[in-house]
């Protein structure tokens, strides 16, 4: 499957989902005015991606700022990632945040509690 690449912009994070390189990452700031529209290609990509059998996928999230409408879209992204578990894929989320950014850590914890996905919290 072709990789997904969205370049970082002023209000949108860089998104790279590259199965060949086994690299899945969302990095930067997320506050596009229309978050649903921004994340639509990500939803589409995740819906058409089927990981190889017994795959172990690590998704790296390193976000500096997330607006409230982006939160809803990111939760949806994580729900779609969570769906891969049905096929026996093992998933881990690496949630990186600035060392003094408690709010960002809490957002990760909230996502973890809502979805029941394994999260590793990494302070930068």
């Amino acid at each position: 499957m072709q990789k997904l690449f969205i370049e970082e912009s002023k209000n949108g994070p860089q998104i790279l989902f590259d199965p060949e390189a086994n690299n899945y990452s969302v990095t930067g700031r997320s506050f596009p005015e229309n978050a649903i529209k921004f994340y639509e290609p990500v939803f589409d990509w995740l819906e058409s991606f089927s990981p190889p059998p017994n795959a172990e996928l690590n998704f790296n999230f390193e976000l500096y700022y997330i607006s409230s409408s982006s939160l809803i879209s990111l939760l949806e992204v994580l729900r779609k990632i969570n769906n891969f578990k049905i096929n026996g894929t093992s998933i881990k989320i690496n949630w990186r945040y600035d060392d003094d950014d408690d709010d960002m850590r809490k957002i990760g914890e909230d996502f973890m509690n809502v979805l029941g996905l394994p999260f590793e919290f990494i302070e930068n």
């Binding site: 005015e33 229309n34 978050a35 649903i36 607006s67 409230s68 409408s69 939160l71 809803i72 939760l75 909230d110 809502v114």
Partner: peptide, 22 residues
């Protein structure tokens, strides 16, 4: 906040209902 986030429905205008809460 958690309640609105997890039931998050986007209005026709694109709002998530989380603005004032945030």
């Amino acid at each position: 906040y958690m309640q609105v986030l997890t039931n998050g429905e986007i209005s026709h205008k694109g709002g998530a209902g989380l603005g004032f809460i945030t």
